[in-house]
Amino acid sequence: MSHDEVIKVEGLTKMFGDFAAVNAISFEVKKGEIFGFLGANGAGKTTAMKMLIGISHPSSGRATVAGFDVYTQAEDIKKNIGYMSQKFALYDDLTVKENINFFGGIYGLTRKRIKEKSEALIQELGLENVANQLVGALPLGWKQKLSFSVSLFHDPKIVFLDEPTGGVDPITRRQFWEMIYKAAHQGTTIFVTTHYMDEAEYCDRVSIMVNGKIEALDTPKKLKEQFQAESMNDVFLKLARG
């Protein structure tokens, strides 16, 4: 694993009127790292993430993602990242294959490349029998796994996952994390938000946002030592409750 930083953030701020939704946050994420981005509802996670994926303009501060500047190179950022959230993942009224073709096309892959990769992907996920079925008819867990694979389809340097496992059964949730480990192992950087604190323990490093600021950032092990807590859940409760 090389140690080049694929995300660099310095003093990044987003104001809504007088309100600092994101208040001068700074951090770096390394290649192949699984970086957990935690915080209570309303702490500013989503706003911060939107700036990093190039769909919201910062009020001040600096950030580069995959080597591109969030102010001037937002389009390049979008081409070099993957994104998946529970709210927006795949089109329910397209089939599995159509979804893959659609997203492959959006990310500018050639037809030939899409065809090759889509066959490999369908096989890897064991979706051969449902490849021509509408995605809406698939169980949630399958959808989420497919959605994650689609977000990796164009070999992005970084993939942003916004609460990817909400409501998913515990076995599928773990299969999902195994896919995350595999992607990270192959050098993809993972930037993930979650409300499952056991998942925070799966991350290489974790940041915790409170009221727009990053109040803690370290490995789960060191955070537990620092806050004299048994688990990440305890760390979170201590920090976010003040």
Partner: peptide, 10 residues
């Protein structure tokens, strides 16, 4: 409590 952070859940 679905989608609710650990503090609010508690």
């Amino acid at each position: 409590t679905t989608g609710v952070d650990p503090v609010s859940r508690k």
